[in-house]
Design a protein around this nucleic acid. Sequence first.
DNA 1: CCCGTGATTTAT
DNA 2: TAAATCACGGGG
Length: 234
Amino acid sequence: MEHGAVRQQIGLGGPRLGREFYRRDPVTVAKELLGQRLVRIVDGRRLAGLIVETEAYLGVGDKAAHSCRGRRTARNNSMWLDGGHAYVYFTYGMHYCFNVVTDRQEIPTAVLVRALEPTEGLEVMAKNRGLLTKETVEKGLFGLGEEAGGLEADVLYRLCSGPARLCQAMAIDRRLDGVDLVTSEVFFIERARRGRLREDQIVCGPRVGVAYAEEWADKPLRFYLRGNRFVSRP
DNA sequence: CCCGTGATTTAT
DNA sequence: TAAATCACGGGG
């Protein structure tokens, strides 16, 4: 099915980011992904959120990147695909993390998506996250019609604020590894914002959880929206 | 602060 | 084949 037709069938949604958006260096893509909308279709329903935090991984030589040594393995294979594909990996025996592959084929760079501001399908996300306790349901916090209307703040801010949390919320696992975000009917990114963010709207700092990466540990390759409440850590 | 959890990678 | 590691999250 053609993309426009898919969008129409699904309803909602704006134009999707195209191949050329992703075929750039990971730092540029990491910054420009901020404010765009990640969408996952599950059982015909849209789960979506605005990307508010990202990290760039610079490929061969970047000691924090899975492609640091330039060796293509069963796990990191997707990093060598063309820009716009998904790289999903499994770690710590229980967590998935989602990256957007950047630049051209054979250049193994990527952007880790670290946090979303959830906008659609919040009750499904809460269920996927195991945050739908009996008490939460009894209090009638869901099914009120308004998306985040009755959702308690402590649940809301734990939905997608972390790379593994957002994967759990949006049902992202290894089956989505290698999927093409430009053409997939179930996993893609929509343009929710046109033009560039002002530089002062973006906070830049060291990547999280890469202390082992020696001289690469402190490079300012993490980006998030200034003042946004949904980043994984302020 | 510590710990679960198991695939993947690296060292013997 | 064995050991160490890990782009994390949840619970004190």
